[in-house]
Amino acid sequence: MDVPYDLTSYVRVLKLASTPSWEEFSRVALIAGAGIVLVGLIGFVIFVLMSVVPGSTPA
């Protein structure tokens, strides 16, 4: 493990990185939020189906 080489590569990456514009940030946040809602909705549908089907939950 070459620590000086690793540090210079990290600094190089940070210099190349830039702050996203508000439009780019809001679009990424919207897509991520939609994905979270979709996964939650799928989980809720599975929960409802497991509650409705008799004998599906152990007693």
Rank of each mutant, 00 (worst) to 15 (best):
F25I: 00
R27G: 08
F47C: 04
G55R: 01
V13G: 02
P58H: 04
L38G: 11
Y10A: 15
A17E: 03
G43I: 02
G43M: 07
I46F: 04
L49S: 10
T19Y: 08
G35N: 09
T57V: 14
G55L: 00
G35W: 02
G33T: 09
L14I: 02
I36Y: 08
D6I: 13
P58L: 06
I31N: 01
L30Y: 15
W22H: 09
T19H: 04
W22C: 06
K15I: 15
L49T: 08
K15A: 14
G40D: 09
F44D: 04
R27A: 14
I36A: 14
L16G: 14
D2S: 09
S26K: 12
T8W: 05
P58E: 07
Y5L: 14
L14P: 00
V11E: 13
F25H: 03
V28Y: 11
P54M: 01
G40R: 07
L14E: 08
P58S: 10
E24P: 00
V48D: 01
M1S: 12
E24T: 12
G35K: 06
M1R: 10
I46M: 05
E23T: 13
A29K: 10
V11Y: 09
T19Q: 11
T57I: 15
Y10L: 15
G35I: 03
I46Q: 05
V52K: 08
V13E: 12
I42A: 12
S51D: 03
